[in-house]
Design a protein around this nucleic acid. Structure first.
Length: 259
DNA sequence: ATGACCTAACCATTAGGA
């Protein structure tokens, strides 16, 4: 199985690039974040022509997640039980079972600044996600993919000194990721196509991508049985190039047969 | 060259991203 995740920063604005990428990369399952459209407005027919079924969760302008699959899409769950909101739950998680693998696409709240109510929301949301995953993990192989808005280590930001006091790198955020790993989830660290750091996000501004000043904030967390099947895993930085890219690059993970 | 913000929404200014 080829599993991928991509924060597309609007599925409508990215549709031509998304379709081209699907046709060439041919993932079996793709998790999308920041689709920024209502579930009813998702371009289901367009991706359907490429053989993908869609489980979309979205309510308009902000957030929005989806799972695309060409190997089955069962037991779709939009959101999860006791999911925190701000104040109401947002479209930040969708799960489906694809060829026997429970796949989650998540878009973790940004947090803005450590003194913001949004930061507390982020930590609360991650703790609730942990509980929801714990319940799901007993059912079999599972992968949580998405934009976690947390850089797991200082090596995952281009200049750690610049991020002191900022969100995305604070100990409580990193501890929330550690809590996910304690469930038995493994951080599937992808190979960078260029340079030593598998960054997945580069700000649009100031030529950050061209200088490779990025962050690794998009993650694939796999249950142990699934992590053992990981072959090649890489960040597709080619998808960050050219005209009209997302500010995030996709992660592609190849799992050997048996998944 | 990869090339110096982008997106969606009460349409033009703003919230949000990280």
């Amino acid at each position: 199985m080829r599993l991928a995740t991509w924060n597309v920063n609007s599925v409508k604005a990215r549709l031509p690039r998304l379709l081209e990428w699907l046709a060439t990369t041919r993932p079996d399952v793709l998790c999308l974040q920041e689709t920024k459209c209502a579930a009813t407005a998702f371009p289901t027919a367009e991706v359907g022509e490429l053989g993908y079924a869609v489980a979309a969760h979205g309510d308009g302008r902000w957030n929005g997640v989806a799972v695309l699959s060409r190997v089955g899409l069962d037991d779709v769950a939009r959101g999860f039980s006791d999911e925190p909101g701000f104040p109401d739950p947002e479209a930040r998680a969708v799960a489906a079972t694809c060829a026997g693998v429970r796949v989650w696409s998540v878009y973790v709240p940004n947090g803005r600044t450590p003194d913001s109510p949004h930061y507390l929301y982020k930590l609360t949301w991650l703790a609730a996600l942990r509980d929801a995953l714990a319940a799901d993990l007993s059912r079999g192989p599972l992968a949580v993919c998405g934009d976690f808005n947390v850089a797991p280590t200082d090596a995952d930001v281009w200049d750690p000194a610049l991020f002191v006091g900022s969100t995305h790198v604070t100990p409580p955020e990193r501890e929330a990721l550690a809590e996910l790993r304690r469930l038995g989830l493994t951080d599937v660290v992808p190979t960078p196509m260029k340079g030593p750091h598998p960054y997945t996000y580069w700000d649009y501004r100031a030529g950050m991508f061209h200088q490779n000043k990025g962050m690794r904030i998009d993650l694939v967390y796999a249950s142990g049985d699934l992590a053992a099947l990981v072959g090649n895993a890489y960040v597709d930085r080619e998808a960050r190039k050219g005209k009209g890219p997302s500010d995030h690059a996709p992660i592609v993970v190849d799992l050997s047969d048996g998944s």
